[in-house]
Nucleic acid binder design. Structure first.
Lengths: 161, 161
DNA sequence: CCCATGTCAGTATCACTGAAATAA
DNA sequence: CTTATTTCAGTGGTACTGACATGG
């Protein structure tokens, strides 16, 4: 389970303080997501964030870029790059919104829809498999804590001692 | 709470499928960590991963690079860059290990120890605050699920349909 | 005039792969 | 010789800030 740091060279022993251990678990998952994202790029052609964008657009055709950056919790300028890469691969089409010519309305191409339909080899598959191994109760609890965590990190209200 | 995608432009309604919503929550936290990491760099001078490295070294002086990359779940070559940046800032000293001259043994400098002692304005502070808002039960459940998730992502055993 | 949408330029970190140097 | 530790070069994606163009 590797919940302690087992040093091969130095004898400093014992478990980590609780908070720090939780941080480590959190970063471990974040790194795992990124590592898997890179593997997906190799195997599928799209990264994790790119795939998540595809899936949301597939589910909500006609979504605007703004909607998407809100849903993904990323800065609009970050999304620009993600969308450009999807577009360059021919997975995504953008049309000007009738009635508001600033807006880009997003749709999947046929190839985009194909990739969207794939389920194996994705981060979701890994997460789905992991979630099958835990109780419904734990899953729900985790969902709650993640939401709390994300809200707190988004707010950034942790500047004072 | 924002647990659904509220579209300003397009009417496609309803909540997301469960798995996808969980993925979104997961990425939201991952992005939150990175955003906070950047803010820390501005305010404290170190990023999230850099700080986590500092804390572990502070707790286990004499740790080797290999131990650390294992603990952080990152590739050794990734750690090289992190350590170089810490060293360039004068927060970290490396000494050759007596007895094994390949190994770099890591210690904090005085300035490194000072930053290590800071608690406010860090990711940990945000996470700590968030964890105070959830029940002990939920916290423990989350810790378990995160471990399962990290293990599954590390293993990479999700290639088959 | 003001606000919203989106892009662009510039910058930095992270994370990998693959190869190499050094030492056990 | 084989293995382990660590660095280096190269690549690519993410994410920001701040400025800008365009449109409501």
């Amino acid at each position: 389970m590797a919940s302690t740091v087992t040093s091969r060279s130095n004898g400093a022993p014992g478990p980590l303080p609780d908070n720090l251990d939780f941080m480590r678990a959190l970063w471990a998952v974040a790194h795992g997501l990124e590592r898997t994202s890179k593997r997906m790029r190799r195997d599928l052609g799209v990264t994790g964030p790119q795939r998540l964008a595809l899936r949301l657009i597939g589910l909500r055709p006609g979504l605007s870029a703004r909607d998407l950056s809100d849903a993904l919790h990323v800065h609009p300028s970050t999304l620009t790059g993600v969308l450009q890469r999807l577009q360059a691969q021919g997975l995504l089409a953008r049309v000007e919104a009738s009635g508001d010519r600033r807006r880009a309305v997003l749709r999947l191409t046929r190839r985009g829809a194909q990739i969207n339909a794939r389920r194996s080899g994705t981060v979701e598959a890994a997460v789905g498999a992991a979630l099958r191994d835990v109780t419904t109760r734990d899953r729900a609890a985790t969902r709650r804590v993640l939401a709390t965590l994300a809200a707190r990190l988004d707010a950034g209200d942790f500047r004072q001692p």
